[in-house]
């Protein structure tokens, strides 16, 4: 039963047990909801989830609803890393050594308003797992630009034709610069990779960071059924490579795409990129190629296929 080629590669064997419930209030086709569903398969019910202002403030349950089978604590937008660190320290103070503290922040709560607290906690090597589910803009409030918004994307605060002129902030480089024990990227189209990275992270001590791309059909202007497709295309076009960094030094590509699709495949499905001309696409391609090249260099990957053709 099943296709073994298929099982070995992209989906793999996924933990059956669920620690998230149906009936949550995420929009149809929500990548962030799927992110957490997969993440919870690794965290199970012995984690405390700290959520700053983000889509998950709503998804996790409007009072009195709850959709996660573990404790969820909400906190102000910029405060997640510090509140999470405090919870961990508080749990230790009251004698709980085991409970994992996991921050679940959007890209705003990570790249933008949360960055100071994130940097502080990372520098102190607080014993927490910080998960950024990145939908590349302020989506809970309706697609306002964040510093995770990629080059060329329109948003309600960078409307076309004044699309975002700057590349996405390189949060992984920032985290690597903190020399934290573990930082990794993941995305929902690669569930086994995602779950194994969460598992890897919770087996470690100290500050751990996961950057998870979570497409948002509402904000990206993509068909609702293409959420996972976009996640996959992001990897296959190399705009969102899957890799991990240990101690800020050892880079490793965790998935090397055997096909290299042109960026147009990815952009074409999303209205936010609809005003890009050939010149902008070329610029985007240069950004991606540069980043990929750097990544290959750091991870010691010397395959020919890493060169853009």
């Amino acid at each position: 039963m099943g296709n073994t080629v298929f099982e070995e590669t992209l989906v793999g064997k996924i933990e059956q047990d669920e620690f998230m419930l149906s009936g949550h209030n995420a929009c149809p086709g929500c990548g962030a909801a799927l992110t957490v569903r997969l993440m919870m398969k690794a965290l199970k019910d012995r984690a405390v989830i700290v959520i700053p202002a983000s889509c998950w403030s709503i998804i996790s349950g409007v009072n009195p609803l709850r959709c996660l089978e573990t404790v969820v604590l909400h906190c102000p937008f910029p405060a997640a890393a510090a509140v999470g660190s405090g919870i961990k320290k508080g749990l230790l103070a009251v004698g709980d050594q085991d409970t994992q503290v996991v921050i679940l922040a959007g890209d705003g709560g990570t790249f933008d308003i949360g960055l100071q607290g994130l940097s502080g906690a990372a520098e102190r090597n607080e014993d927490i797992l910080f998960v950024c589910y990145d939908n590349e803009a302020y989506m809970n409030t309706g697609m306002q630009k964040s510093s995770a918004t990629p080059y060329g994307s329109a948003s309600t605060t960078t409307p076309a034709p004044r699309i975002k002129p700057n590349p996405k902030k390189d949060i992984m480089a920032i985290m690597a610069a903190h020399q934290i024990p573990y930082a990794a990227t993941a995305t929902i189209a690669f569930p086994q990779d995602l779950i194994s990275k969460v598992n890897r992270a919770i087996d470690l001590k100290g500050f751990r960071f996961l950057h998870i791309l979570a497409p948002c059909p509402q904000g990206w202007g993509s068909p609702v059924e293409k959420t996972v497709t976009l996640s996959r295309l992001a990897v296959l076009t190399r705009i969102f490579p899957l890799f991990e960094i240990e101690d800020g030094k050892r880079y490793r590509l965790t998935y090397h795409p055997s096909v290299h699709l042109p960026l147009e495949n990815y952009f074409g499905l999303q209205k936010r990129f609809s005003s890009l001309g050939p010149r902008e696409v070329e610029q985007a391609r240069e950004n991606v190629d540069y980043y990929w090249g750097e990544l290959c260099r750091k991870s010691g990957c010397s395959e020919d296929c890493c060169r853009y053709s």
Partner: peptide
């Protein structure tokens, strides 16, 4: 924020 978290716990 930190002591808020610790006080939560």
């Amino acid at each position: 924020s930190y002591v808020v978290g610790a006080a939560y716990a």
